[in-house]
Design a protein around this nucleic acid. Structure first.
Lengths: 123, 123
DNA sequence: CCCTTTGTTCAATGTTTGTTGAACAATTGA
DNA sequence: TCAATTGTTCAACAAACATTGAACAAAGGG
């Protein structure tokens, strides 16, 4: 479980790739919850998203999110701790993440951001 | 050439659908150019985008943009005049279009927004 | 009335995508 | 050392997507 885990640099991030990442409901839900935990610097691990889909499918989406530059993963023991790359995103695509997260929050009902919300207790 | 041309209402617009629309390079280029011509209320017709792809492929992308709510089309003679649904988008997803357009503008080079730019003379 | 212009629709194609389960890899704890 | 936990990788599959050319439809100009 110790692979390179390559993350793109800021200027390797591409707008269409990022938008495509955010356009998938599962990935949007992941990003949304990462965003809800970024104040405080909390990192989430893969298991925190198990309500969204199966493990292998989540791994697939995590990889896309990492490749796009939206999130960063670091390995701690058998866990992957993940967080939004907020500063890089804001530098590269100013206002984008904020607009997406806010719109997602307003639509939290119709976008089923979590079937059984057990993460959103951290507030 | 006189079909219903259904446009979604504001609350029929879905965030993932809009983001998916914007994630395609051709559609992003279309939206970008519509945005460049919105001040002044200029409308563009299909032919203005012929450099981007073939006609039937463009018709496909136009339909997706219409269905998502990003743009409005009205029929005038044999032409389709198109414009961004800026107010509706801003009401439904505040800040999103601005952030996307600004990022696209900054990346105008790497996103090939138009092979031969003949539209961008209108300024 | 015919021909041109403008743009859509349809069918066909190849590619990409999301999803699944099974197998695998690495770390932790007993 | 053995088993459990955590998560990835692989192969397989169906569904969705972008692209193309040919056929079609509507309006305008001679």
């Amino acid at each position: 479980m110790a692979r390179p885990l390559r993350h793109p640099t800021r200027d390797q991030m591409e707008l269409p790739v990022v938008l495509d990442c955010l356009s998938d409901p599962i990935r949007l839900a992941i990003v949304y919850h990462l965003a809800q935990h970024e104040r405080g610097g909390t990192e989430l691990c893969c298991g925190d998203f198990n309500e969204l889909s199966g493990k292998s499918n989540l791994a697939y989406h995590f990889a896309k999110l990492r490749d796009s530059g939206l999130m960063q993963t670091r390995i701690v023991g058998t866990n992957r701790l993940m967080k939004l790359r907020r500063e890089d995103m804001d530098a590269r695509f100013p206002g984008l993440i904020d607009a997406v997260i806010k719109s997602a929050a307003r639509d939290a009902g119709r976008l089923q951001l979590l079937p059984e919300c057990e993460i959103a207790d951290a507030d």
